[in-house]
């Protein structure tokens, strides 16, 4: 059944008041905006930020055994290892460790595949740089950048 003229007027007035009340209630609510450069969100502990080599607190060095598991499993070819085997020794040594953050998809497969738990995700998410070269982390920058 169609509403009559006066019923329509009544509905109109009711809904106008309802709508105005709603927006006034929202006007006094606390805004949800986070003012990004001034205020920063608290990052969860298990957030998958950029990759970093764990530092062993006892030796003060990284724990990498240069097995290249991470390099092999990386689906985006973001990790490259430079390995040397010194004369008269069977143990491989890690010379350089590159992580290209421009390629990294933050999937976490490298962290899972590490047999000695040498790499981990940090909480760093502000990785923007002015040139592509700066996106590649090296052994000497991988620590300082990902504190």
């Amino acid at each position: 059944m169609k509403a009559s003229y006066f019923e329509k007027v009544g509905i109109g007035i009711r809904t106008v008041i309802k709508g105005m009340k709603k927006s006034l209630v929202y006007f006094f609510k606390k805004p949800v905006t986070l003012q990004y450069p001034h205020q920063k969100k608290v990052i969860a502990d298990r957030y998958r930020g950029s990759i970093r080599l764990k530092i062993d607190p006892q030796t003060g060095k990284h724990k990498c055994i240069a097995c290249t598991n991470c390099e092999k499993i990386c689906p985006a070819f973001a990790i490259t290892l430079k390995i040397e085997t010194p004369e008269g020794s069977k143990k491989k040594e890690l010379k350089e460790y590159y992580v290209d953050l421009g390629k990294c998809i933050y999937c976490g497969l490298c962290v899972d595949s590490c047999p000695v738990d040498a790499i981990e995700h940090s909480n760093v998410y502000e990785v923007a740089e002015r040139s592509k070269e700066n996106l590649i982390l090296r052994l000497d920058t991988i620590g300082e950048k990902n504190v």
């Binding site: 927006s23 929202y26 006007f27 006094f28 609510k29 606390k30 805004p31 949800v32 905006t33 003012q35």
Partner: peptide, 13 residues
Amino acid sequence: KISGHIQLRLGPM
């Protein structure tokens, strides 16, 4: 400002 606060934003800051 008012439009911002009605939409739970802050408006110009």
